[in-house]
Simulated assay, not measured.
Amino acid sequence: MLKHARPYRFPPLAQVLAQAQPGSAPGLGDVQAALTQGFQEGLDKGYQEGLASGRADGQAHGLQEGLAQGRQQALDQARAEARARWAALATPVDALMQALRQQRAEEHAALRQDVVDLVAKVARQVIRCELTLQPVQLLSLVEETLTALPPTRDDEVEVFLNPEELERIRELDPTRAARWQLRADPALEAGECRVQAAGREADAGCRQRLGACMAQVQAQLGPDDDAPLEAAA
C-alpha cells in the first residue's frame, strides 16, 4: 500500500455548476427550463426551416405544373385557331371545286350528247341513201320482225310502207312484194314500216332500230361524273 495517501472528496454539484457559470447557481428548475427552451427553439427552427423548404418545393412544383398547363392551353388554343382559319379558307375552295366538278360534268354530258347526235345524223343519212338505192331491204326487216311474232301464213301478214317506197319495191322485186299484203300508209316516213300478223302489230322500221343502236352508243359513252377532277387535265 501507498503510504501517506488520503481519500479524495468530490465537491458538491452546486459548487461545480457555480464554478462552470460564475455568478450563478442554477437549480434543477433552471436546468429544466433551459432544456425546454432549447427544445422549443430547436423545434421552432426546424419548423421554420421545414416551412421554408416546403414552400420552395411547392412553388417549384406549382410552377412546373403551371407551365405545363399553360403550354397545353396555348397549344389547344393554337390548334383551334388553326382549324378555324383552315375552315375559313377551305369553304370557298370547296365551293370552287364543286363548281368545277359541276361544270366538267355538264361539259362531258354535252360532249357525249353531241357525239350521239352526230352518230345518229350520220346513220340516218347512210340509211336514207341505202334505202334510196335499195328500198327492197325493208322487206328483209319485215322478215326479221316476223321471226319474233307467232307463226302466221304469208297471206295473213300486212305490211304498211311509205307509198313511194312501196311503189319502188313492187318495181324492183315484184316476187318478194307479192309474198305479203303490202299496204301504203302516207303517215309513214321513208324507211318506216309496220307489220300486222296474228292480231299483233310490230314496228319494223329503221327509226326504232336506230334508236336502240343510239341507246347502246350512249351507254358505251356512259357518264364519268365520279372520276377525279385531276383526270380532266
Rank of each mutant, 00 (worst) to 15 (best):
A56W: 00
S140T: 13
L188K: 04
E164M: 10
R6F: 11
V142I: 09
A25K: 06
E189G: 15
R124M: 13
D155M: 03
A212M: 14
A80R: 05
C213E: 08
K45C: 05
A87E: 14
D44A: 12
K121C: 13
V16P: 01
L89G: 04
E171T: 09
G29N: 09
G50K: 02
R85W: 08
A227P: 03
M214D: 03
P92M: 06
L35A: 11
G66R: 05
Q220Y: 06
D203S: 12
A5V: 15
V119G: 00
G38D: 14
D225V: 07
Y8L: 11
P228M: 04
H4N: 14
F10L: 13
Q59V: 09
E165V: 10
A177E: 08
G50Y: 02
A187K: 09
S24Y: 07
Q37Y: 08
P163V: 05
E107Q: 12
G62N: 12
K45P: 01
T145H: 02
R176W: 10
A87I: 04
A78G: 08
R55H: 09
Q137S: 14
M97F: 11
A110D: 11
L221R: 03
Q103Y: 07
T36R: 10
V122Y: 11
V16R: 08
G199Y: 04
G23D: 05
V122Q: 15
L51Y: 09
V115A: 15
N162K: 11
Y47S: 05
R179F: 02
P12S: 12
Q216T: 10
L146E: 01
A190N: 07
G205K: 00
E167L: 13
Q72C: 01
L96T: 15
W180A: 00
L210S: 08
A68N: 06
L2H: 09
Q73K: 10
A197M: 00
Q64M: 08
M97I: 14
Q134P: 02
A56M: 08
A78E: 09
Q69I: 00
L96I: 07
R153N: 03
T152N: 04
W86R: 12
L75K: 11
R176A: 15
L67D: 05
G191D: 03
F39T: 06
Q40H: 08
T132H: 13
T132L: 12
D44S: 12
L188E: 03
E49M: 05
Q15W: 07
M1T: 10
G70I: 04
D185H: 04
P186Y: 07
G38P: 01
C213R: 13
G46K: 05
Q137W: 10
G62I: 01
Q40M: 09
S140P: 03
R168N: 07
A184L: 07
G191C: 09
G58H: 12
L63N: 14
G205Q: 02
Q98W: 04
V122E: 15
R179C: 02
A25W: 02
R194I: 04
L141M: 13
A74F: 04
T145W: 01
S24N: 04
Q181I: 03
R209Y: 05
A109M: 02
